[in-house]
């Protein structure tokens, strides 16, 4: 039990047993109840070093486990041993050797064949994405455009795998002047309405999602997307731990749990970039705009930093792509 009195500041002294911080006047540790008197700083430091070393070993072990991959060598090794066992089974006419040989050969070939896709370290991915958003922000800063980004559906058949983001010069006047059918996807700067068209950061990802689903988004209704898109994002590409998509009035609400692009929201984005969203949010916006043929805006994005959940509200505006 602690006999400490008062609320004096903890001055960095630690319990030698559990390493929790204690006040200078404490005689017993509040956490583990260990008696603090008589312990010198050296013992405390030694314990702290031991604890840090243990943590270091644990982290190294975790890193080693994460880095471990079924190598080609192990695949070839198993296959070779399997073939040798099969050959021996024929030579000695042994059933057991034959089963062993079959098993080893099978697993060897499986390891060679079922090796995972080429993985890239997350830091590299993050740095590449940061650069893309930085250049986008610089462009918008330079132009001084303040409009809400609007995802536009493909306007022609040959642009089926396309889609663009229109960012108006003035906020609130994005699509007032002219219908979007007047805009060509190839135009970078547009005069009516005045603004700029950029390539969505999630364009390639949206096309990959389409390939994985085996159909074009333009041929899917919203119900089909709500039902099947989360599975592709979670199971197919492992982009997030969970995705929930549901209708919300005249919009669509999406919850993304532990996305690999969460870091962008943690680092903070300005309003315009938040309206574009991370590549995953952008690809979902493209899916919605291709499916409905209507312009889509990312009207609200909230990150729950504790649970790592990104809540996104997409709004479909009344305009038609036709």
């Amino acid at each position: 039990m602690s006999r400490a009195t008062g609320d004096g500041a903890k001055l960095g002294k630690r319990c030698p047993n559990c390493l929790s911080e204690v006040r200078p006047q404490d005689i017993y540790c509040e956490v583990c109840g260990n008696r603090l008197e008589g312990q010198n700083e050296l013992v405390i430091l030694a314990n702290m070093v031991q604890s840090l070393e243990k943590e270091n070993r644990e982290l190294r072990r975790k890193l080693w486990k994460l880095k471990r991959r079924p190598s080609r060598a192990s695949g070839f090794g198993l296959s070779f041993a399997g073939f040798a066992a099969l050959a021996s089974s024929i030579l000695y006419e042994s059933n057991i050797l034959a089963f062993i040989g079959l098993g080893l050969t099978f697993w060897g070939i499986l390891l060679l064949y079922a090796r995972p896709a080429h993985y890239v370290r997350g830091q590299i991915l993050e740095s590449e994405i940061r650069t893309h958003y930085l250049s986008l922000r610089r462009l918008l800063d330079h132009l001084g455009y303040e409009g809400q980004p609007v995802y536009l559906p493909p306007r022609r058949l040959e642009e089926m795998k396309g889609g663009s983001i229109f960012i108006g010069a003035e906020r609130g006047k994005e699509m007032d002047d002219a219908p979007i059918s007047d805009l060509s996807e190839m135009e970078l700067f547009t005069l009516r309405p005045r603004g700029v068209q950029v390539v969505p950061p999630g364009l390639s990802l949206a096309n990959l999602l389409e390939e994985e689903m085996g159909r074009n988004f333009s041929g899917m209704d919203l119900g089909y997307i709500f039902q099947n898109l989360p599975a592709v994002i979670i199971e197919g590409f492992e982009l997030a731990d969970g995705v929930e998509i549901e209708e919300d009035g005249d919009g669509v609400r999406v919850k993304i749990m532990n996305s690999i692009f969460e870091f962008l929201y943690r680092e903070g984005m300005d309003d315009r970039l938040e309206g574009i969203g991370c590549p995953l949010v952008s690809s979902i916006a493209l899916a919605l705009t291709r499916s409905t043929g209507k312009p889509v805006t990312v009207s609200e994005t909230k990150l729950d930093s504790e649970s790592g959940t990104i809540n996104v509200l997409y709004k479909m505006t009344g305009g038609s792509a036709a």
């Binding site: 089974s89 024929i90 030579l91 042994s94 034959a98 079959l102």
Partner: peptide
């Protein structure tokens, strides 16, 4: 010298 497993063993 012959392969010791029959069709049903493989099955």
């Amino acid at each position: 010298m012959r392969f010791p497993l029959a069709f049903w063993d493989l099955s």
